[in-house]
Design a protein around this nucleic acid. Structure first.
Lengths: 351, 351
DNA sequence: CTGAAAGCGCTAACAG
DNA sequence: CTGTTAGCGCTTTCAG
C-alpha cells in the first residue's frame, strides 16, 4: 500500500509550466507575474498540494522539527514539560518528535541517534538515570547539533540548561518537616549519578545542619531506577524504616519515589503522617486527592519546557555559534498538606 | 549552526570507490567482493557512518515511522497506549511520532496533515472530542494512508479498530452500583459525539433497565471537552446533584471526568461514598491511593496500543490492499474499592 | 565485481 | 518573468 502525494511536478505538468516556476510561485517570489502566481496558487489549493517536508529536509538539511528525549512520558512532570515545549515549538513553526529512554542508557543512545540522523534541528534532553557516560551526546553537540538540557542536566556540556532549584526545593521540604516537629528524617533518593539527586541531597543535608540536626548518611537510600520499579522502593523503605533511632519522616526526591512510598505505606498499613510523615517531589495533578492529601515539592514543568524550547530555537536560528550560555533555574513550590501535618505527641507522652 | 553528518560520498572518496559500490557493500550485496565489503564496513564503523533516513524516505517513499494522534499524552490511558505502540513499533524497526490534538478539531487536522506529508507510513488515531467531520481523515485513508483507529473510533471508516468493550464496562460498573444498594445513579458523560460515549451510555442504560430501574435522560450530563476543563465538570455536577430525587451515585465515563468529579466532591465536602458513590473509567495508576480509594473501570491501554501497532504494521507491509478488517474489542476490568462501598442505611432509617 | 547515471521532490544559481 | 540545470544522500538500473 502506498500513499501518493501531489508534487510540484504534477502542478507544472498540468499547467504547462516548469517546476521552478511553480516552486517560485508557491513561495510568492517577486520574479513571478501576478497572473502565474494566481494560476498556480489556485490550482495548488484545488488539488490540495502540500510540499513534501522530506524533500525539503534533504535539501535544506533542516527539518523544522525538534527532538525530545525524556525518561518516561507517563510521568506527569515530563508530559507537562512536553506540553510546554510543544506550545512554543508550534508557535515558531516547529514540530516535535518525542522519544522515551525508559531510564535505559541503550535506548537513550538509540533515540538520540535516530533523532540526529532524522535531521531534527535540535534536541531537548533530560538524561536517563542510568547514563554515566555522555559521549553519545557531547559528540553530536560538538558536531553542531543544538542541544538544550533540562531537568537532569549534563554538567560538563557547555550549553543552555533549564532546571528547577533542586537544592532549595529539598531544603524547604526538609525544613518544613523539621518545623512540623519531625526528628528523624530520611531521604529516599533517585539515582546517585544524576545531578538533581545530588542537589536534592545537598538541600536536605543543609536543612538538617542549619537546624542543628546531624546529617547521617545511613538515613539516605538510593533507587537507581528513580522509583520506576516498585521493588527498589520497597527495598529502600524496608531498610530506612528499620533504622534505629526510628525514621519518622521521609523526604522523597522524585515523582515515582513519592507515590511508590505512599503505596508502600498503604500496603504495610503505615499511617501517614502519624507513623511516618511524607513529602516529596511530584508533579502529579492528583496529590491533593490522595489519602492523605500529599505534601509535595512541585516543579514548574510546563514553564521549564517552554523555556527550553525557546532557548533551543534561539540556538537553532542563531546565525553564529552561541557562546554565552545561561542556566535557567526556576523555583520549586512547596504544597503543604496533611501528609506532613504535625502530630500531637503530647497525648501519648505527657500527663 | 549546521550539523554535518558523514555520507556515503565521504566514504567513497576516502576509499577511492564509487558511491554505488559503497552503498552495495553496506547493504551486503552479493555482487561485491568480500574484500571490498570488509574495507567499507570497517571504515564505515570507524567514522561512525549512519545512513540518512531522510534521503531514504525520499527515495523509497516510506519512512519506517508511524504517527500517533491522541488527545492528550498527559492522560494515563494514552501514555500507556503509546507505550504499547512503541514497544511493537521498535520491534519491527519503526519509529513513532506522537502528536496531541488537545481535543481540538483544528489541531487534529494540522497534526494528521503534518504526519502524512511527513511521510509516516501509517497512523494510529484516537479522534478528538470535538471532531464531528472526518473528511480530513477519510480523505487520506482513501488515498491509501494506512490508518488504525483506537479508543475513539470512526464508525464510518472501514479499517481496523481497537476498542475496549465500553458497553460492557459501563454495564458492569452500573450494575456494581446497583448491587451495592445505590438507587439514583447519574451518569457523567464525555462528548456526546464520541462513539465510546454512546456505548457507555447504552451500557449504563441497559444495566438500569435490566435491574428494573427506569432510565431517565435527565440524570445524564455531558461534558463536551471530556472533563479536560474542570469548570464543565463542575457545571455538570451542580446540575446532577440538585436533581430530585437526589442522585446518590455517579458513573463517570472518562478519566478526567472521574478525577474531576472527585475534586468537586472534595471542594464541596461531599463524602464519598456516604453522600455520593463514585465509579468511573480511569487508567490512572494511583486510584488505589486516592481518598477514598476509587472504584474504577480500567482499560487495557498498553494492550490496545500493542494491538493497534501490530495491525497498522500488518497493513503497511501487506502487499495487496486489505479488505477484511476485524474490530478488536477488549474487555474492561472493574476494580471495586471504597468509593462504591454499600452504605448501611439501616442505622439512619430503622429502629 | 565495479562504476556511471538517473531519479525521489524540492530549491536556487544561472541563463535567457 | 520563466526555463534549464544541478544537487541534497541514497538506491538501482544499465553498462562495462
Amino acid at each position: 500500500m502506498k500513499f501518493e502525494a501531489v508534487t510540484i511536478k504534477d502542478i507544472a505538468k498540468a499547467l504547462g509550466l516548469s517546476t521552478s516556476t511553480v516552486s517560485r510561485a508557491l513561495r510568492d517570489s517577486y520574479e513571478i507575474s501576478e497572473e502565474t502566481k494566481q494560476l498556480v496558487l489556485n490550482y495548488a489549493k484545488e488539488i490540495n498540494y502540500r510540499p513534501n517536508p522530506i524533500a525539503l529536509s534533504l535539501k535544506e538539511k533542516r527539518s523544522r522539527s525538534i527532538g525530545i528525549i525524556v525518561s518516561e512520558i507517563a510521568n506527569s512532570f515530563f508530559s507537562q514539560a512536553i506540553n510546554g515545549i510543544e506550545s512554543v515549538a508550534h508557535l515558531h513553526g516547529y514540530n516535535v518528535i518525542i522519544t522515551q529512554s525508559k531510564e535505559s542508557y541503550e535506548r537513550e543512545i538509540a533515540n538520540i541517534q535516530y533523532l540526529s540522523s532524522r535531521s531534527v534541528d535540535g534536541c531537548i534532553i533530560s538524561v536517563s538515570a542510568e547514563t554515566k557516560d555522555y559521549t553519545h551526546i557531547t559528540e553530536l553537540y560538538e558536531r553542531n547539533l543544538p542541544i538544550v538540557c533540562f531537568d537532569r542536566v549534563i554538567e560538563a556540556l557547555n550549553t543552555f540548561k533549564v532546571t528547577v532549584n533542586s537544592f532549595e526545593g529539598a531544603y524547604n521540604a526538609t525544613t518544613h518537616l523539621i518545623k512540623n516537629g519531625f526528628k528523624k528524617i530520611a531521604m529516599l533518593s533517585g539515582s546517585s549519578v544524576l545531578s538533581i539527586s545530588k542537589d536534592r541531597l545537598s538541600g536536605y543535608r543543609q536543612a538538617l545542619i542549619d537546624n542543628g540536626i546531624e546529617f547521617n548518611e545511613n538515613y539516605v537510600a538510593y533507587c537507581q531506577h528513580g522509583g520506576l520499579i516498585y521493588e527498589e522502593v520497597e527495598a529502600a523503605l524496608n531498610y530506612l524504616l528499620n533504622l534505629k533511632p526510628k525514621t519518622d519522616a521521609i523526604f522523597a526526591g522524585a515523582d515515582k519515589l513519592t507515590t511508590n512510598c505512599m503505596r508502600y505505606c498503604k500496603a504495610h498499613h503505615i499511617d501517614i503522617p502519624k507513623q511516618l510523615a511524607l513529602i516529596g517531589f511530584s508533579n502529579l495533578d492528583f496529590t491533593d486527592l490522595l489519602c492523605p492529601p500529599l505534601s509535595v515539592v512541585r516543579q514548574p514543568a510546563f514553564e521549564m519546557g517552554r523555556i527550553s524550547a525557546e532557548l533551543l530555537i534561539k540556538m537553532i536560528e542563531s546565525k553564529r555559534p552561541i557562546t554565552d550560555f545561561e542556566s535557567k533555574i526556576l523555583p520549586a513550590e512547596i504544597y503543604a498538606r496533611a501528609s506532613t501535618e504535625p502530630i500531637n505527641t503530647k497525648k501519648k507522652n505527657e500527663k
